[in-house]
Design a protein around this nucleic acid. Structure first.
Lengths: 172, 172
DNA sequence: GTCAATTATATAGGCTCCTATATATTAAAT
DNA sequence: ATTTAATATATAGGAGCCTATATAATTGAC
């Protein structure tokens, strides 16, 4: 609520010929901090909605990808969830600890295991679907479907820019 | 690149009268995962741009709020950065460890300290401004200013929904 | 077949952030 | 003044992510 930032840029000295105008420092009307704030808010929302069912935000992609009872390697889970392999490893470790996931050695490849949801996890699915649905409604309350679509479109373009940054780094 | 999700919802059984249509599971065209992805991408981008100057993403609000050489309590820093007090405490601890920040006991209040940037930190400011400016450009490349504004507007509304969720929780 | 890439996980270390709780100090109420 | 409530930090514990690196198994080139 406090708006101390808005009137802030007082000491904007004109002594340095920087290419950066002072209001670039106005972090709150730039997409980045808004996205960060939204992401943190989403984590809290997800936590609130999922904790009652013994699930958490980082586990959602795993639930989603294995929802039909199928099995998948850790590597594929990571790739499809678009997180790094060690992050997925940690999430799966927690899920295994909580009895949500099972790993069986892949008969075709001695390095790899096939991960699948336990019955306990599969039993949670209906509740998770409801929770996600309600959370989504809460999130976009007051938005028209067109606005949601616009938001998604813009975010997708943003994400493409962000991905490109990483790969171009490699190319250089 | 893999699009295994798109054709996924095969086993959509019609045996359960859930209020949730199966395509609600299509996480990738819903804002939440896009925001999360964007946020993670932003963290990586920030890390890439800031690490050369010995700064990191979570420190930006502190740099911003104390940019004019002023001092502020940890509590105010947390409130203005919109993160919880323990998160700010940890960030400040790291910044202190790195010689970026100094704490002097508040003469008016024995519980509190006044935090300010060190000269070492203030010296980094021009580089940080440049880094942020370049990062911002990379982020919204291909966006018109109107699109950026639309994005910010939608995100602000989203954030309002997310905040309201938290407070309504308290009210209930 | 052997040796060198490549690939799948595992591990180590760090950052950001959250909730819950303890401690100290100040402010308010009586 | 004393007791109580509010406030400022500190600490403990955990989730989620990342990079860099080690280990083991598989594939490919010879």
């Amino acid at each position: 609520m406090t708006d101390s930032r808005t009137g802030g840029g007082a000491a904007a000295a004109a002594d340095e010929p920087s290419a950066v105008p002072d209001n670039e420092w106005e972090l709150l009307n730039t997409p980045a901090p808004l996205i960060n704030m939204a992401s943190r808010g989403l984590m809290r929302l997800a936590e609130r909605r999922l904790k009652p069912f013994g699930a958490s935000a980082g586990q959602l992609p795993v639930f989603y990808l294995l929802r039909d009872g199928g099995a998948m390697s850790q590597r594929d889970l990571a790739r499809l969830a678009r997180i790094e392999q060690p992050s997925m490893a940690q999430t799966l470790a927690r899920m295994e600890r909580d009895g949500l996931v099972r790993r069986v050695p892949d008969p075709k490849d001695g390095r790899s295991s096939l991960v699948s949801l336990t019955r306990k996890a599969l039993a949670k699915m209906p509740a998770l679907r409801e929770a996600l649905h309600a959370g989504r409604a809460e999130l976009v309350e007051g938005f028209s479907e067109a606005e949601v679509a616009t938001l998604c479109d813009l975010l997708q373009r943003l994400n493409r820019n962000l991905e490109r940054g990483v790969t171009s780094e490699i190319a250089e």
